[in-house]
């Protein structure tokens, strides 16, 4: 298949986010919104190879999902550029945009919300194959779908022909991973892919995600609030707090020798599975950088209400 996105000369990164800033609020006749900078001057580069797993870690309001939406081209940056193979994704031609849509895929937190409960799960698998003309016949479509399901450890006969509610959460999420595989993507953005499933299912999903990298050479952006799985599966960790990268580096550097108080707070907040390792006192009162933006509004709201 020819590649309508500008060829990728040696040294051109696969993806580059350059000084990307996203600002919300502040507008509208009925709005008394403050301006919220969801993402502030974000820079990041992914090389075409080797495939890597980058974890973007932060709490609600940290900007991690905004960052994902920028990368997916779902939201336009207020300033800065998102480049794919060296070209601004907002200046793509129709064909380039189509290739980008296929090569940059997403997996979301709630694998149930993606499905239409009136359709069999086959629907989410056949649709992208048809839309992107990945197969030349129905037989080829069937074969590709079977291969993709097997690649994530699902038996086609146990999965196809069933309705979404007849699958477990783990099966639904792995079906979504199979769906992305059908499109032969270069990058997958996984936004909290395991935060809604049980621990035993979590390992199977993580195993499938790791396989994307090792076997299919697909780079992964793993967006999570769980620093522990990030530590275990990623090659690089970015810690976001209120839209700002407060720290980044190898998992060992970030976790074993955190420099920023917010990273330290995230690490100390994780309950360790050892009754002798004390959780300690909550430092949340002394450090006000928690991602909970609304907490910050609290005194202002009280004042508004006449206190």
């Amino acid at each position: 298949m020819s590649d309508p996105v500008a060829t990728n000369p040696a040294g051109t990164p696969l993806v580059e986010l350059r000084n990307v800033t996203k600002v919300f609020g502040g507008g509208g006749a009925f709005s008394n919104d403050r301006v919220v900078t969801a993402l502030d001057n974000f820079n990041y580069t992914i090389q075409p190879e080797p495939a890597t797993i980058t974890a973007v870690v932060g709490e609600s309001g940290s900007g991690k999902s905004t960052m994902a939406n920028m990368l997916l081209g779902l939201e336009k940056p207020s300033s800065g550029e998102v480049l794919y193979k060296g070209k601004d994704i907002w200046k793509f031609s129709r064909d380039e945009r189509r290739t980008f849509r296929r090569e940059v895929q997403a997996i979301f937190q709630d694998p149930y919300g993606v499905y239409n409960s009136f359709y069999k799960v086959d629907h989410v698998l056949t649709t992208p194959v048809a839309k992107f003309k990945m197969a030349s016949s129905n037989e080829e479509t069937d074969r590709m779908i079977s291969e993709a399901l097997l690649a994530v450890g699902l038996r086609p006969e146990d999965t196809l022909g069933r309705y979404p509610h007849q699958l477990s959460g783990g099966q639904r999420q792995r079906t979504m991973i199979a769906r992305t595989l059908l499109l032969r993507p270069r990058i997958i953005i996984a936004d909290e892919p395991v935060s809604m499933v049980d621990a035993s299912l979590r390992v199977t999903i993580l195993a499938s995600l790791l396989k994307l990298k090792s076997q299919f050479g697909i780079s992964l952006i793993y967006i999570t609030h769980d620093l522990a799985t990030a530590y275990q599966i990623s090659d690089h960790i970015i810690v976001l707090n209120r839209g700002v990268v407060v720290e980044q580096g190898t998992p060992d550097a970030v976790v074993k020798n955190p420099q920023h108080p917010y990273t330290q707070l995230l690490i100390s907040s994780i309950p360790q599975a050892d009754p002798d390792k004390a959780w300690g006192e909550s430092p949340a009162d002394s450090f006000d950088g928690t991602g909970d933006l609304r907490t910050v509004d609290f005194s202002a709201t009280l004042a508004q209400n006449g206190h």
């Binding site: 390992v203 199977t204 993580l206 522990a228 530590y231 275990q232 976790v255 074993k256 690490i267 599975a273």
Partner: peptide, 18 residues
């Protein structure tokens, strides 16, 4: 199946088994 901040736990082994 619980990830931790240790490299030598069973977690990655469990993932490999999966």
């Amino acid at each position: 199946s619980l990830p931790s901040f240790d490299r030598d736990t069973r977690f990655m082994q469990v993932i490999e088994e999966a």
